[in-house]
Design a protein around this nucleic acid. Structure first.
Lengths: 218, 218
DNA sequence: CATACCGGCATGTGATCACAAATCCCGCCA
DNA sequence: TGGCGGGATTTGTGATCACATGCCGGTATG
C-alpha cells in the first residue's frame, strides 16, 4: 500500500509504523493495558489494518523504550514490574522531574500557572469520577506542561520513558487505591511556582512523584 | 535462513537483528562512527550478511535510544549534537551517575576498588597512547563497573542510553583535546570509595562526568 | 488422579519484491 | 561561470511468504 497521501488535515502524512507506534504508546502510557497482557504482531497488524512489518517496528521501538517486554522467544507482553523495579523507577522520576521543575521555575510566568491550575481542576474531576485512565492522562499532562518550560528535551524524553515503563502498573496501582481527595501535592507545586520558592518546589515535586508508588511497600 | 543453531560456544543463539543491534551499538557508544555519518539499511545488511529486515529493526531500536537520527524521509545518520544538547546530556550524566555512584558506595568492597584501579591503569595507558576509541571504551568500563554495584538496572540503562547518544560526539571531542595527563578525577573517585566519603564521591563523579564536556563552551 | 508425551496451531523471524520518493549528478542555459 | 532542471539511481516502506520454534491442547500411561 505505502503512503496513501492524506487529502488534507495531516501535515506530516505519518508512516504506518509511526501511527501504530504512537497509538500503542499512548495506550500503554495511559494505563489502558494491564501488566502482563500479551500482544501479537498479527493482532496489532489487523487492528490497525497494516501488515506485520510496521507492527513489528512499532513493537521493537516500544520494547527499546521499556514500554513492552519481549520474552526470549520473542513473545510480546506489557511488563510486570517487581516492587524493586517500581521503586527504582520512582527514584528516577524524582531525580529527573525535580531537576526539570527546578529548571522550569525561572521561566514559569502567570500564563503557565493558570494553565496548570486549569489542568489540575481536570485532574480533580477525574479523581472524583474514579476514572483511572483519565486521571493518569491529565496528571501526566500537568507534569509535562510544567516540564516543557524547562527547555530540556532530552531530559523530558527520559522522564516520559519512565512514565511509559510505569504505565500498565500505574493503572493497576490507582485502581487499587480508593482516593477521592484532590491532588494536594499539585497545589503545593503551584504555590511554590507562584512564590518562586525553589526548595519548596523540589520538595513538592518529589512528594507528588513518590507518593503513589510508596503504598505498594506495605 | 533463520537461525542456523550454533553448534556450541554460544549460549543464546542470538537472532540476526540482535547481533546487528549489538555490533552497531558498541561501535556508536565507543565513538567509532563520526557525528553525522550516514548509514543505509542495505549497507548494514550486506556488511552483516543479512537482509534489510533485521538491519531495519536494529536501526529502529538504536534510533529509539537516541543513538541514531532518522531524518523525516527516513534517512539514517549518527546524531550531530548542538552545544545545548551536549550540555543537557552532560547534566543528565551528572544527575544519574552521581546517584548510581552514591548507591554503589555502601557495597563497594576492596575487590571492586582493586578492579577499578586496574581498569584505571588501562585508561591511563589509552590516554598516553592517544587512542580515542580505547579511551572511551575503558573509561566507560570504569564507570559501568562501579555502577553495577548500585543494583539499579533501570538507572544504569538510562545512563548507558546517554553514553550512546554522546558516543559519536565524544570521539570528536576527545580527538580535539590533546591531553596526556592521567585521569585525575578517577583517582578522586577511588579515594572517596576507599574513605567511604559520600559527598566527596558525588563531587568527584560530577567533576569527572562534566569535565570533558565543558571545553566546548569556549 | 497426576504426569509425561505428542501433534497441531499460533507466533516471531528473515528474505524478497514492488513501489514511491528523495537524492544525486550531469548537462544546459542565462 | 554559476545556478537550475530533469532523469537515473539510491533508499526507505510495506506486503507477502516460507520456515522454525514455542506454546497449548488432548490422551495415554504410571
Amino acid at each position: 500500500m505505502t503512503v496513501t497521501a492524506r487529502p488534507a488535515q495531516e501535515t506530516a502524512a505519518a508512516p504506518a509504523h509511526d501511527r501504530v507506534y504512537r497509538a500503542l504508546r499512548t495506550r500503554i502510557m495511559h494505563g489502558e493495558i494491564a501488566p502482563g497482557a500479551a500482544l501479537t504482531l498479527r493482532g496489532i497488524g489487523s487492528e490497525f489494518a497494516v501488515s506485520m512489518t510496521p507492527a513489528r517496528e512499532a513493537v521493537r521501538r516500544l520494547a527499546a523504550e521499556g514500554a513492552l517486554f519481549l520474552s526470549s522467544s520473542g513473545r510480546v507482553t506489557t511488563p510486570e514490574l517487581t516492587n524493586e523495579r517500581i521503586e527504582e523507577l520512582a527514584a528516577l522520576r524524582a531525580l529527573l522531574e525535580v531537576e526539570l521543575a527546578s529548571r522550569a521555575l525561572p521561566r514559569a510566568h502567570m500564563a503557565l500557572i493558570d494553565r496548570l491550575q486549569t489542568i489540575n481542576s481536570n485532574v480533580a474531576e477525574m479523581v472524583s469520577k474514579r476514572d483511572a485512565v483519565g486521571y493518569i492522562r491529565t496528571n501526566l499532562e500537568f507534569h509535562r506542561t510544567l516540564y516543557l518550560r524547562a527547555q530540556a528535551p532530552a531530559m523530558l524524553a527520559m522522564a516520559e520513558t519512565v512514565w511509559l515503563q510505569l504505565g500498565p502498573t500505574m493503572r493497576a496501582l490507582y485502581g487499587r487505591l480508593r482516593r477521592t481527595d484532590p491532588p494536594q501535592n499539585h497545589r503545593l507545586i503551584i504555590a511554590a511556582l507562584k512564590a518562586g520558592d525553589e526548595p519548596g518546589l523540589r520538595l513538592a515535586v518529589r512528594s507528588d512523584v513518590t507518593q503513589g508508588l510508596r503504598l505498594l511497600a506495605g
